[in-house]
Design a protein around this nucleic acid. Sequence first.
DNA 1: TTTAGTACCTTGTATCACATAGTACTAAAT
DNA 2: ATTTAGTACTATGTGATACAAGGTACTAAA
Lengths: 107, 107
Amino acid sequence: MRKGVLELCILAIIARNEEVYASNILEQLKDAKLIVVEGTLYPLLTRLKNEGLLSYRWEESKSGPPRKYYKTTCLGERLLNELTTGWQELVDAVDKLMSENYNQKEQ
Amino acid sequence: MRKGVLELCILAIIARNEEVYASNILEQLKDAKLIVVEGTLYPLLTRLKNEGLLSYRWEESKSGPPRKYYKTTCLGERLLNELTTGWQELVDAVDKLMSENYNQKEQ
DNA sequence: TTTAGTACCTTGTATCACATAGTACTAAAT
DNA sequence: ATTTAGTACTATGTGATACAAGGTACTAAA
């Protein structure tokens, strides 16, 4: 049932950009009305990196501390595809359930 | 982010039937390709009942132990509406994120 | 040298959903 | 008559998810 929606969103955001850093991802999530807090995102990024789904490089910034620029690995792309399919299936299933107006009584 | 999808599905199933009991709900979830196990459903039903979202009555069965027939309360209907809206918003947000092909670099 | 802004990290906690095991009732099989 | 199978509900323990809250560290402006 649990489908890792947030994981999907984050992989999608990273995949569609050349490279992004965490605060950047937070902004893009916010733009899409998906509110996520730092305490959720950072551990998740670390997990995805440890699982080989993401890679990153450090880059100095002129306006603050250095940033970790993430991009998806080959494995990450593959998971993104799988999660996308799973998400679509969930949406279809719930939509089906919600649209049916069946009135089953005793069988 | 957390949207209680399963809660939504179960409320929807109970609302669209006159009355249903747990095993019945499991079947309908299965029909919709939403696989859920007993150990997930029963505690959730109890929680929803304790929160005043569901009510039930016992009914004897000729083919086994007695059944708890659930139906939604007024409060349950209201939550169903809210969860439905929330779900639709989540689907829209994710779809938007997935369909956009924007390629933002350094800003 | 303090304050504000940006960026990353950690710890603790609540909730969700599963796995597993158990109780209790009826009906059919031995 | 007692065991076995099927149905239905319940309880306990566990892992994963996401949040709250607080902390570190860098730069630039007041």
